[in-house]
Each structure stands twice: as C-alpha cells, then as structure tokens.
Design a protein around this nucleic acid. Sequence first.
DNA 1: TTACGACTTCAAGTCAACTTGAGGTCAACC
DNA 2: GGTTGACCTCAAGTTGACTTGAAGTCGTAA
Lengths: 137, 137
Amino acid sequence: MDLLDIGEVVRRSGVKASALRYYEEIGLVRSASRIGLRRQYEPQVLTRLAVITLAKSGGFSLTEIAQMFDASGQLRISRKAMHARADEVETQIQELMALRDMLRHVAECPAPSHLQCPSFVKLLKSAVAQKRAVLSS
Amino acid sequence: MDLLDIGEVVRRSGVKASALRYYEEIGLVRSASRIGLRRQYEPQVLTRLAVITLAKSGGFSLTEIAQMFDASGQLRISRKAMHARADEVETQIQELMALRDMLRHVAECPAPSHLQCPSFVKLLKSAVAQKRAVLSS
DNA sequence: TTACGACTTCAAGTCAACTTGAGGTCAACC
DNA sequence: GGTTGACCTCAAGTTGACTTGAAGTCGTAA
C-alpha cells in the first residue's frame, strides 16, 4: 500500500496537522485507516486538499466546500450550480479590480487629499454602487 | 449644520447601527457630536464608510483599514505601500480567475469524474503551485 | 399623560476555523 | 531500559467582526 501518514500529508499539502484533524472531525476529509492510533491517508487526499485550499482562497466556507463533494469523494455539483459559483467568483473579481484601480489611483494621484479628488470619489461611488446593486439583487 | 443621525447613516451607507457603534468603539469611525445620547455624524463619514466597505470586500481586516487613514481622517499610505496593496489584490484576482476557470471547466467537462480528468488536475495543480509560490516568497 | 419610536449602554453571546495544551501511546534507536 | 520523536485525544482557548438582549433615555404626537 502507498498510504501516507499525517506528516507526509502535511509536507505535501501545506495543511497543518491540527487542521487536518479538524477537517476529519467535521467530515471534510477522511483517513483511510489507522496504524495503532496513527492516521493513514490515501494519496487522493492530496488532490482533495488542493481543491479545498483553492476553494477556501476563493472565499468558500468549509461547509460550502463539503457540499461540493458527494459521498464517494467525487466533485459533484450540477453544471448550473457550477456556473452560478463561477458567476459569484466573477463578481468578486470585478470588485477586486475596482479596488485595485482605486489603490493605483491613490498611489499616483497628486491631489493633496484623495477624498477631495473628484476622480477618486467617482471611482469609489461607482464601486460601492455596483456592490450594493449586486447585494440587493 | 448638516449632521446625520445614525439612522440616516444606516440608510445611506448600508452599514448596520450595531456595526457603526462597533467601528466607533475600535476607533475606525467617529461621530462628530451628540444630541443628548444620540450620535451625530458628519456627512464625510459616508465616504469613509464606502472606503471601509470596499476594502473589507477586498479582504482587508479592520485593523489594516484603520491604518489606511491618518489622524485627520485622510487616506494616507505611501505610494509604495499603495502599490504593494494593489499587488496583493492583483494576486488574489489571479487566484480567483484560476478558480473561476476551474469551475467553468468542471461545469463543461464531460468526463465522468473530474478528479480523473487530466486537464482538471492540471489546472488544479498549477493553481495550487502558484499559490504556494506566492506564500513562500 | 402616556405611549411610541428611535436611539442609548454594557455585558455577553455567536460563528467560523482553527490552535493550543496537557497528558498519553508507541516504535525505534542508543 | 530509557529516551526521543511523531503521533494521538479531548477540552478549552483564540481571533475577528459583529449581534443580541435587557434595561434605560429622549422628544414628540395623540
């Protein structure tokens, strides 16, 4: 067998042992077996952890991520749900781009006070307006 | 005077009263004065709240946001720091784009199991590798 | 005059996602 | 046979960002 012990999983996934145990506790990952008390993991756990890590950085909660897998460990969401997720991510990307543009503007703008700079305030207003529109829809 | 009371600020900013009081407690916003016990805000608080809201959605903590303002309430970070922030945001945008692409792929890919689909695994690996590279730098 | 609505304080509670700490197990090496 | 080192459990603690609840204060309108 090519089972991995927790230290190996930590090294290869970058996820801490305490987090791994926590994930197991909440049912997000499972260890295949034990040797004595020690958890042994199937290598596939690494892919699963990669998905988890990525989704986390995309702002998904662990609960949401858990729902992305079915009982057999496959990624299983309907195409429609996938696209819906992708759209959410897309929206967040737009917001971040607005934020980035504002930061760049502030870095370059020679105005003594940004909050008085018309183009800054305009960027700000439109960013916030867009956000509120999204939230209320 | 054109001071706003808290209800007006709530309506115009979308920030809840309890959050506003909390922000005041931690020094992130201030109320200009009181009428009896009631807080009165200067209209500028709305711009400040817009900045706060936007930065929050960009993943900045309230502590980090507080540091973006100087004592007089101006946005004041060095150009260099601004660009550094913008770079961070940029990185996050890249990650989210990778995530979005993966989601779209999963939605479209006809493979029975995504975790066995070579192009999915490839997308996943490169996304995670990029992330870890960023973290370790 | 009493009732209402919009505010107030302050302490405590909540939630997610972990981390920490104390005390225990176990195989392997000196 | 004693000591590492790597793991284990379980309960409790932490952090950030608020929210909630109980009890109180005001101004105004019926």
